[in-house]
Design a protein around this nucleic acid. Structure first.
Lengths: 167, 167
DNA sequence: TATTGTTATACTCTATAACTATA
DNA sequence: TATAGTTATAGAGTATAACAATA
């Protein structure tokens, strides 16, 4: 897996078990009281899972985000996308170009302002996108399996609140 | 700022205001219903803030995490650290080496197992670390200013639950 | 055989600066 | 002047493979 960590060494005997128990009852360390750290770790779990999930398809998280947004807002420009998705326009270029080359995205010139490009899904892309989204949602459900529906909504709400006020 | 986004274009007139209102009442798009995406965006806000915060000090998030953990667990080895912090041991090496070269970390040989290194904070590092932690906490308080103490605890709890079951 | 620390390497993400063409 | 798209480039983060020393 892409998310594979270095293997923990094999322990043995009662001594190791006691050490594990001691770890768990340890007081929460400073690091774990930093929300930025917790967010990075939690995000890492999902991102690594995404990579594993798409080993067979050359689709990266940022590209899924682009396709997903273009589907909902056909005719959006790369500049608008870069602001909405917080991807710098300079980094947006190769992402969009690759998606176009792979026949997932179409770029058309805007007749009113010849600087801007109008992005739309290429024919057939919507169907693929739907399949990929289904895969992602199944993956998320798996990672979230220990959270109740109420807890999931709480998490969404808190992250949304955090982001609307801070970023 | 390191987190600086491309500037949004200047709008003008009632038409633009109406468009903004429309955006805000738009139904939440598919992307925003993916917890992995929300986590990535929220994490990005904190990470970008961290970079801005330490423009004057060559301290990256992973290095703060290492120092913070060594402080709490003196004598921990790079291998243990790599597992706890989810940093591959191969990527841990240059981080630890740099911290040692900068006089923040000490590496000593373990007399019982000559393969392992025992990491401790170098003299004076604890004081610097405390100052840096203070800076980080102030930054987090700023980003979290719109969340009540109860909401912050909820967020900690949910992220912790998520990570303990999924990663 | 397994683990620790290490080197080499590559890919993605993110960032800055500077250019062109259009407005 | 400002914006849209582009190119070139650099720095982090993260990944795999393979090695020597030690257990």
């Amino acid at each position: 897996m892409g998310s594979k960590l270095d293997k923990p060494p094999k322990k043995s005997g009662a001594k190791a078990a006691a050490a594990d128990a001691a770890d768990r009852t340890q007081k929460p360390n400073h690091l774990d009281r930093l929300i930025g750290y917790q967010l990075r770790r939690a995000s890492g779990v999902f991102m690594a899972g995404f990579v594993d999930l798409f080993r067979d398809v050359p689709l990266r998280p940022a590209q899924f985000a682009i396709l997903s947004h273009v589907e909902e807002t056909p005719g959006i420009s790369p500049s608008e996308l870069s602001r909405i998705l917080a991807i710098k326009k300079t980094n947006m270029v190769p992402l969009v170009v690759e998606l176009e080359q792979r026949g997932l995205l179409k770029r058309a010139a805007d007749s009113k302002d010849r600087r801007v490009q109008l992005l739309t899904l290429a024919p057939g892309a919507a169907k693929q996108l739907a399949a990929w989204r289904k895969r992602i949602i199944a993956h998320e459900d798996s990672l979230l399996r220990h959270l109740s529906p109420e807890e999931r909504e709480q998490l969404f709400g808190l992250l949304s609140k955090l982001r609307s006020s801070a970023g």
